[in-house]
Protein backbone atom coordinates (compact mmCIF):
# COMPACT_ATOMS: atom_id res chain seq x y z
CA UNK A 1 0.00 0.00 0.00
CA UNK A 2 1.40 3.35 -0.95
CA UNK A 3 1.49 6.13 1.60
CA UNK A 4 -1.50 8.49 1.56
CA UNK A 5 -0.76 11.93 0.22
CA UNK A 6 -2.34 14.97 1.61
CA UNK A 7 -4.13 16.63 -1.31
CA UNK A 8 -5.70 19.54 0.57
CA UNK A 9 -4.26 22.49 2.38
CA UNK A 10 -4.60 22.73 6.12
CA UNK A 11 -8.01 23.85 7.39
CA UNK A 12 -6.70 27.17 8.67
CA UNK A 13 -5.31 28.08 5.23
CA UNK A 14 -8.57 27.10 3.51
CA UNK A 15 -10.49 29.36 5.89
CA UNK A 16 -8.13 32.18 5.03
CA UNK A 17 -8.75 31.79 1.35
CA UNK A 18 -12.52 31.77 1.94
CA UNK A 19 -12.20 34.99 3.88
CA UNK A 20 -10.25 36.59 1.04
CA UNK A 21 -12.84 35.42 -1.53
CA UNK A 22 -15.62 36.67 0.71
CA UNK A 23 -13.84 40.00 1.08
CA UNK A 24 -13.77 40.30 -2.71
CA UNK A 25 -17.37 39.30 -3.25
CA UNK A 26 -18.99 41.11 -0.33
CA UNK A 27 -18.56 44.65 -1.69
CA UNK A 28 -20.18 43.58 -4.95
CA UNK A 29 -23.16 42.10 -3.10
CA UNK A 30 -23.47 45.12 -0.82
CA UNK A 31 -23.19 47.52 -3.74
CA UNK A 32 -25.83 45.61 -5.67
CA UNK A 33 -28.13 45.40 -2.65
CA UNK A 34 -27.62 49.06 -1.79
CA UNK A 35 -28.12 50.01 -5.42
CA UNK A 36 -31.37 48.09 -5.55
CA UNK A 37 -32.62 49.92 -2.47
CA UNK A 38 -31.49 53.35 -3.61
CA UNK A 39 -32.68 53.11 -7.17
CA UNK A 40 -35.97 51.55 -6.08
CA UNK A 41 -36.44 54.48 -3.72
CA UNK A 42 -35.42 56.89 -6.47
CA UNK A 43 -37.97 55.56 -8.93
CA UNK A 44 -40.78 55.57 -6.38
CA UNK A 45 -40.01 59.21 -5.52
CA UNK A 46 -39.71 60.07 -9.20
CA UNK A 47 -43.24 58.78 -9.73
CA UNK A 48 -44.53 61.13 -7.04
CA UNK A 49 -42.77 64.09 -8.61
CA UNK A 50 -44.14 63.14 -12.03
CA UNK A 51 -47.65 62.97 -10.57
CA UNK A 52 -47.26 66.41 -9.00
CA UNK A 53 -46.09 67.88 -12.31
CA UNK A 54 -49.08 66.36 -14.05
CA UNK A 55 -51.52 67.71 -11.45
CA UNK A 56 -49.85 71.12 -11.71
CA UNK A 57 -50.18 71.25 -15.51
CA UNK A 58 -53.70 69.82 -15.63
CA UNK A 59 -54.97 72.28 -13.05
CA UNK A 60 -53.26 75.21 -14.71
CA UNK A 61 -54.58 74.57 -18.21
CA UNK A 62 -58.12 74.18 -16.88
CA UNK A 63 -57.97 77.60 -15.23
CA UNK A 64 -59.24 80.69 -17.03
CA UNK A 65 -56.50 82.97 -18.31
CA UNK A 66 -57.93 85.80 -16.22
CA UNK A 67 -57.65 83.77 -13.02
CA UNK A 68 -53.88 83.31 -12.73
CA UNK A 69 -53.39 79.83 -14.19
CA UNK A 70 -49.68 79.79 -13.27
CA UNK A 71 -50.33 80.54 -9.60
CA UNK A 72 -53.21 78.09 -9.46
CA UNK A 73 -51.08 75.41 -11.12
CA UNK A 74 -48.19 75.90 -8.71
CA UNK A 75 -50.50 75.77 -5.70
CA UNK A 76 -52.07 72.53 -6.98
CA UNK A 77 -48.66 71.00 -7.69
CA UNK A 78 -47.37 71.91 -4.24
CA UNK A 79 -50.47 70.43 -2.65
CA UNK A 80 -49.95 67.22 -4.65
CA UNK A 81 -46.34 67.00 -3.45
CA UNK A 82 -47.35 67.54 0.16
CA UNK A 83 -50.12 64.97 -0.19
CA UNK A 84 -47.53 62.44 -1.26
CA UNK A 85 -45.20 63.14 1.62
CA UNK A 86 -42.73 65.39 -0.17
CA UNK A 87 -42.21 68.65 1.64
CA UNK A 88 -43.08 71.59 -0.56
CA UNK A 89 -40.42 73.73 1.09
CA UNK A 90 -37.59 71.74 -0.48
CA UNK A 91 -39.20 71.51 -3.89
CA UNK A 92 -38.88 73.94 -6.75
CA UNK A 93 -42.11 74.14 -8.73
CA UNK A 94 -42.48 76.58 -11.58
CA UNK A 95 -45.40 76.93 -13.99
CA UNK A 96 -44.56 78.86 -17.14
CA UNK A 97 -46.71 79.80 -20.12
CA UNK A 98 -45.22 78.68 -23.43
CA UNK A 99 -46.10 79.79 -26.95
CA UNK A 100 -48.95 81.98 -28.04
CA UNK A 101 -52.64 81.56 -28.69
CA UNK A 102 -54.17 79.48 -30.23
CA UNK A 103 -51.46 77.05 -29.15
CA UNK A 104 -50.54 78.52 -25.80
CA UNK A 105 -49.29 75.86 -23.42
CA UNK A 106 -48.36 75.68 -19.78
CA UNK A 107 -45.22 73.93 -18.60
CA UNK A 108 -44.86 72.71 -15.03
CA UNK A 109 -41.28 72.02 -13.98
CA UNK A 110 -40.87 70.28 -10.64
CA UNK A 111 -37.48 69.63 -9.05
CA UNK A 112 -37.00 67.94 -5.69
CA UNK A 113 -33.64 67.19 -4.03
CA UNK A 114 -33.01 63.44 -3.71
CA UNK A 115 -31.39 61.82 -0.71
CA UNK A 116 -30.37 58.18 -1.14
CA UNK A 117 -31.32 55.70 1.56
CA UNK A 118 -27.98 53.85 1.57
CA UNK A 119 -25.72 55.99 -0.55
CA UNK A 120 -23.25 53.32 -1.65
CA UNK A 121 -23.90 53.75 -5.35
CA UNK A 122 -24.15 56.99 -7.29
CA UNK A 123 -27.64 58.38 -7.82
CA UNK A 124 -28.87 61.63 -9.33
CA UNK A 125 -28.87 64.55 -6.89
CA UNK A 126 -32.42 65.54 -7.65
CA UNK A 127 -35.72 64.33 -9.06
CA UNK A 128 -37.23 66.29 -11.89
CA UNK A 129 -40.43 66.09 -13.90
CA UNK A 130 -41.64 68.42 -16.61
CA UNK A 131 -45.15 68.28 -18.08
CA UNK A 132 -46.51 70.57 -20.78
CA UNK A 133 -50.19 70.83 -21.70
CA UNK A 134 -52.25 73.06 -23.97
CA UNK A 135 -54.31 75.78 -22.30
CA UNK A 136 -58.03 75.16 -22.56
CA UNK A 137 -58.79 78.86 -22.43
CA UNK A 138 -57.17 80.37 -25.53
CA UNK A 139 -58.08 84.09 -25.57
Amino acid sequence: MSPRRCQTRPVSRRRGSYAIEFAFVLPIFVALGGGVLDWGWYFSQEYKVQTAAKVCARTGVATDQAEDPEGTAEAAGSAALTEQGISGTTATLVATPVGATPEEMLTCDVTVPFTALVGLVPTLPSLRAVVTMRMEDQP
Binding site: G35, V36, W39, G40, Y42, F43, S44, E46, Y47, Q50, T51
Partner: peptide, 12 residues
Protein backbone atom coordinates in the same frame (compact mmCIF):
# COMPACT_ATOMS: atom_id res chain seq x y z
CA UNK B 1 -35.92 46.98 -9.46
CA UNK B 2 -33.74 49.11 -11.71
CA UNK B 3 -34.87 48.09 -15.17
CA UNK B 4 -38.54 47.83 -14.32
CA UNK B 5 -38.34 51.02 -12.25
CA UNK B 6 -36.62 52.75 -15.14
CA UNK B 7 -39.24 51.44 -17.55
CA UNK B 8 -42.10 52.51 -15.29
CA UNK B 9 -40.62 55.99 -14.87
CA UNK B 10 -40.43 56.44 -18.62
CA UNK B 11 -43.93 54.95 -18.88
CA UNK B 12 -45.25 57.67 -16.56
Amino acid sequence: VVDIGYGRTVHY
